[in-house]
Amino acid sequence: MKKPAKIWLWVALVLCVCTTGLNLSEGRWLSVAIAIVSIIGLCVLLFGQRKAGYIVMCVCAVGSFVVGVTQNMGELGAALAIVMSLIGSALVPVITGLFIKSQWKELK
């Protein structure tokens, strides 16, 4: 894996751990569970250089989006909840995908 991708994955790992800590402090247990699985996927991609790690991250992003919309719809309204959840759940997988797309065939 190329150095820029590894640097981004380390940054993403720190961001995801911090976000998970925030969700934990707010008692969002389902979000915490999804985030832990996503962090495991991120670690599999970073340390094991396996495609499965990225796929797990993407599946978790979908779950995170659904949970985020349902948890925030009452407070924010449907449109804003969808936009905010989409940004929050898709940011790391999309940027990661951009970094690893040229290296996809090299991953196990």
Score class of each variant (00 low, 15 high):
3 K>I: 03
5 A>K: 08
6 K>W: 06
6 K>C: 04
7 I>W: 13
8 W>R: 13
9 L>W: 03
11 V>K: 07
11 V>Y: 13
14 V>A: 11
14 V>P: 12
15 L>E: 05
18 C>V: 15
23 N>I: 00
23 N>L: 01
26 E>R: 14
27 G>T: 05
28 R>K: 15
28 R>Q: 15
30 L>P: 02
31 S>Q: 12
35 A>Q: 14
36 I>R: 01
40 I>C: 11
42 L>V: 06
44 V>D: 11
45 L>V: 00
46 L>W: 08
48 G>T: 01
50 R>M: 09
50 R>Q: 13
56 V>W: 03
58 C>M: 14
59 V>M: 15
61 A>S: 06
61 A>M: 09
64 S>I: 00
65 F>V: 02
69 V>Q: 05
69 V>M: 06
71 Q>P: 00
73 M>V: 15
73 M>A: 13
77 G>K: 11
78 A>R: 10
79 A>V: 15
79 A>I: 15
79 A>N: 11
83 V>E: 12
84 M>F: 09
85 S>P: 14
86 L>W: 13
86 L>T: 13
87 I>W: 04
89 S>Q: 11
90 A>P: 06
90 A>N: 07
91 L>P: 02
91 L>F: 11
93 P>E: 07
97 G>P: 14
100 I>Q: 02
100 I>A: 03
105 K>I: 00
108 K>N: 06
